[in-house]
């Protein structure tokens, strides 16, 4: 269900916790699974549940509680822009507008070519460096002027 490489990574996480608390690794395991699969399908959550000896619905609870898990397929690149008050004061709404215009989608939508999903985010702990854009949950880009946004999109399109 998951690749041996993914399982190896999950095992590494499991080892961080006392043996009887494998469940502690569920967040990391879901991250690993999402990295491999792009999103968390029912079968994927079920597999993780089995792997960690958890009730599937308990895994579902976790996957739906933390908002960086994709419970539905997303675009190849999920761009999340923080629009919280401090970021907003520093121009992140303009940055979001710029992205919307460039991509032709609104928050919560995916471009027709399936490449980009644009999301509105809550505080990412990088307020002073606003505007911040998170790419696929893991790569944070800060001080995003319109020029830097354009460069980012170009680079992602090229990949």
């Amino acid at each position: 269900m998951l690749s041996p490489e993914s399982l190896r990574r999950i095992d590494r996480e499991i080892a961080k916790y006392p043996a009887e608390h494998k469940q502690s690794a569920v967040m990391a395991a879901l991250i690993v699974a999402q990295d491999e699969k792009g999103w968390l399908a029912t079968e994927t959550m079920d597999f993780v549940a089995q792997y960690l000896g958890m009730a599937p619905v308990a895994v579902y609870e976790v996957a739906s509680f933390y908002n960086m898990y994709n419970l539905e397929p997303a675009g190849q690149y999920k761009l999340t822009v923080c629009t919280c008050l401090p970021c907003g004061l520093q121009g992140s709404l303009d940055a979001a507008d710029h992205l919307k215009a460039r991509l032709g989608v609104d928050f919560g939508e995916t471009t027709a070519d399936g490449r980009f999903t644009l999301k509105e985010g809550e505080c990412m702990g990088a307020c002073a460096m606003a505007p911040v854009v998170l790419v696929n949950n893991k790569k944070m880009h800060d001080y995003m002027s319109n020029a830097k946004l354009d460069a980012l999109l170009d680079e992602l399109r090229k990949r």
């Binding site: 469940q23 569920v26 967040m27 879901l30 991250i31 958890m54 609870e61 976790v62």
Partner: peptide, 20 residues
């Protein structure tokens, strides 16, 4: 992985335990 409430110390402990 995206939950402000985990900054609250007991929410954080629950989260380390692999729960919401």
């Amino acid at each position: 992985f995206g939950a402000y409430i985990c900054g609250e110390e007991t929410g954080l402990l629950e989260s380390i335990e692999g729960k919401k």
